[in-house]
Write a protein that binds this DNA or RNA. Structure first.
Lengths: 338, 338
DNA sequence: TATTTTACAGAAAACGTTTTCTAAATTGAA
DNA sequence: TTCAATTTAGAAAACGTTTTCTGTAAAATA
């Protein structure tokens, strides 16, 4: 297949290139007769208009870049999948920006927007991968950007989040309702918005129930499975060990579960376990994991929708908060130690 | 930040645009003095060369599209992650083409190469998303394309695969060594190369051990968790039920495990279970899943490397086969029914 | 010193589109 | 019929680069 350009098609159809372009983008303003001629030439030649040419002219690549810490994490990949779905519906393509938690890579991906490779960014991070001039308006220094799932410190940026506070409240209350008083948590990185909100929910709920906040029971994890294991080991060394552990993500809960079992603890008889995210495998763990379900598909869908708004100069909502839901399974049970 | 083009930089530095371009792409052919002038202008203005302009001119978008059935599957996302890693090293960006098993979408993504949005394709499918003219050479009708993990019927296409045959042999032999004779399998779709190869490995190994092949024991799954459950239920209805089940992916094994447990079967005491892939969660299942590990990172890395070759007109290897490894954990044990 | 080579930098074309501007042809109103 | 309004389509500019082709100045050779 010889490379065909709009010129060749124009020649083939005996019209100008402008007419070919119009037939493709604005069929209604070209007469039926000419339109047919052009269409015939296109069909016969199998012409595929070059997107780069068009993009260059229109200043729109039609790409968005999703900057994400790790596609390998099922929670992330779920959102990515939803973003991608919605992107296709809206006519965008998604560039994958898996940073592996490397700031430098995040920056490189972010720059795609500045090099014209992408029109906008969906960012899953609490860190903004740009060097900002603190004296100037934040928004004006950035390409169109939506924060998803995690937020940066810059309040001006549009974000679509999940009700982390409520999720933590529900989880904590559930444990309290089961009679637990010594409820440990394994958080994510303390700088993240998600962890801060969940921590707040945890504290508030404890307080409402009249349970004293015990710093010994809060461990900082990093949302990775291994940290769930490490922190659980520490918790088990405590004199007065917790009867329940609330992990801020399922992976850490899975890690915790492994350590608990290895040490002969029965879940939930000896210690109850709650996760966060409700990844696909949560139901299939033994015991099935009680967890806070995030509306992953909705999160991705809306993030993409909002970015689309932004790209059309319509302001995006500054903050969208989606509800979460506690899914009670078998990893939580009544506190039997009292 | 006012949009800066190469023209503005040229003016700022008092040189021609050609010189600016050369400073950026071929610094060695411009004198140090001029280079410095230009560099200064670039630094001061924060100029980011527009990639679309360059791509248009060079006929290289610098993008590759990964056409994949489902990012949400940890096996797939593992490969994608590796591809992405390697792509970045080589200076490419990865467009995500999650098809959700929809042929039409696969085709749309494949067309990105024809529209100049992508330079090449990494395809995870046994179906070629193109309409081919059967009279003509296959390769000449396709954009640069590498098959990864799964192969199409077209032998000419370069592919990087895993030694599915050997994997199935190892798994089957392991079960035979444990004394199992009634070894059921839950395959993937029969049209896929991966399943065909594994099936062949299974049959050959049975034959070598002098165990008769029993068609009742082979169930066709679809690599999804649910099908693992469904097929296991069928297997349990058999008069002479299997003492071991070898699932062609971990997700199906996880599904099988659930059904087995629900029906009161003990793993591995009553029935042994083997998976394929060794996803991250395989170790954390109860019992930990014996499975065939695929070199996911290597697979992705090589696929991208091969595509890179192709894009530089160097022929890619027609077939790369990577070794797999049986990881024995707790879901397999001696056959106790004899 | 005269001549050839080499190093460097500018002008301009090219990549493949979209879109503005203009002109011709057609239609409708008067 | 004439004139204005509308429809239609072409010419040409523009998007932001890279690269070829030239030309000039400096360096190397004789």
């Amino acid at each position: 297949m010889a490379r065909m350009g709009i010129k060749q098609i124009a020649a083939l159809a005996g019209v100008s290139i402008a007419t070919v372009s119009r037939t493709l983008r604005n069929p209604e303003i070209v007469s039926e007769q000419t339109r047919n001629k052009v269409q015939k030439a296109i069909d016969e030649s199998g012409y595929k208009p070059n997107k780069l040419g068009a993009s260059l002219r229109t200043h729109r690549s039609g790409n968005v870049v999703a900057i994400i810490p790790d596609v390998t994490d099922p929670f992330n990949s779920g959102i990515i999948c939803a973003i991608e779905q919605q992107a296709q519906k809206l006519g965008y393509s998604v560039l994958l920006g898996d940073t592996q938690n490397d700031k430098e890579r995040a920056k490189q991906y972010a720059e795609m927007a500045e090099y014209g490779q992408a029109d906008g960014i969906i960012l899953f991070s609490h860190e903004l991968p740009f060097n900002l001039d603190p004296n100037k308006n934040v928004l004006e220094q950035l390409p169109p950007l939506i924060n998803a799932s995690e937020a940066t410190e810059h309040q001006e940026l549009p974000k679509v989040l999940v009700d982390n506070y409520s999720g933590a409240c529900q989880a904590t209350q559930h444990l309290i309702d089961l009679g637990h008083k010594r409820i440990a948590i394994i958080t994510g990185p303390l700088q993240t918005n998600s962890t801060q909100e969940r921590l707040r929910g945890y504290k508030d709920t404890l307080f409402s129930a009249g349970i004293a906040y015990d710093e010994q029971l809060v461990c900082e994890g990093d949302y990775h499975l291994e940290s769930g294991m490490n922190e659980t080991e520490k918790l088990l060394l405590l004199k007065d060990r917790p009867t329940a552990i609330f992990c801020f993500c399922d992976d850490m809960a899975i890690g915790a579960s492994k350590v608990l079992k290895e040490n002969g603890y029965n879940i939930p008889a000896d210690v109850s376990l709650v996760g966060f995210n409700d990844i696909r495998y949560a139901t299939y763990m033994t015991p099935a994991l009680t967890t806070v379900r995030q509306p992953v598909a909705e999160l991705g869908r809306i993030a993409m929708l909002q970015l689309h708004q932004l790209l059309n100069k319509a302001p995006a909502d500054n903050e969208t908060v989606l509800p979460v839901e506690l899914i009670v399974r078998q990893s939580t049970g009544p506190n039997k130690t009292n």
